[in-house]
Amino acid sequence: MIEAIRECLGQEMDADSRVVVIGEDVGVLGGVFRATDGLQARFGKERVVDMPLAEGVIVGSGIGLAMSGLRPVIELQFLGFGHQAFHQIGQQVARLRYRSQGRHALPLVIRSPFGGGVRTPELHSDAFEAFYTHTPGLKVVAPATAYDAKGLLAAAMESDDPVLYLEPLKGYRLTKDEVPDERYTVPLGKLRVARAGTAVTLIAWSAAVNVAERAAEELSEQGISVEVLDLRSLNPLDIDGIAESVSKTGRVAILHEAPLTGGFGGELVATIQQECFYSLEAPIIRISAPDTPYPLGGVEDLYIPDVDRVVDEVAALAKASA
């Protein structure tokens, strides 16, 4: 997946001289995960800039760069550090088009790895996507495959809306699938049916999609047919795509790495019960992390929902009735 992101950045920078990449350690080092490896050598220090360690001004100056006519791609080294730029993202990036009544478009992309499972130091790994989906004006995407990583990033960079592009920390090297060499886009706001099924709809995004797929495989051995939806995009949300699946299965499980309360799963539950109430055959369940702070690496496997837990909960759901 990391190669797909890197290839996309290179292709977009080649195609459009207005694209600049700014962030911490994105230059010579190529990013701590190497997403920008080789880009500075190819495009120069003017277009791939190692920024001082200050998330607020990384995002804030990115806004200014966008308004000057450039198309910045900002790397936030970890979404956990996004708190230090939260005022610029939530109050500024997301609102400048509206506040200027359309005068200032903000064609910028904030890329950031998020989620856990790779034993990072403390305060790196939270899944904070719900902070940002609660921010009108900001689009939020979270690909799970290398194919989508490339195509969604290209679409995000093409968009005249600001996009938060979330990368699965755990999927960076784990996720390997076929990626075409040529440039292509995956539209914002369209989910992907990762696995077709008939009994239960299991909704996930980013790194959780892989967990969902493995659980679905085990469940199929128990004779339970699970449809796995990879949302890809949280805002805009593909409500029609979700409704289509749910009207077929009547049973829904939502899987995410973030804590339960206030998580994006709650938004999905509310939407589904409104759109598909008469299709539902059992209460919707949420499989999530507990309502506790993200822990140290030694216990993170106890925190993030794993395949066994998903299998157990979805098997119970398949038998449950309303």
């Binding site: 607020g56 804030g60 100056s61 200014g64 966008a66 000057s68 109050q91 200027s100 009544q101 005068r103």
Partner: peptide, 28 residues
């Protein structure tokens, strides 16, 4: 509404948030 030919940002109410934006704009 800022007319198309007027080079300004909206007024800023969240104090100091405009300063990074000005820096990036000038740099750009």
């Amino acid at each position: 509404t800022i007319p198309a030919n007027v080079n300004m940002l909206p007024m800023q109410i969240s104090l100091a948030a405009q300063i990074p934006q000005a820096t990036g704009l000038a740099w750009g």
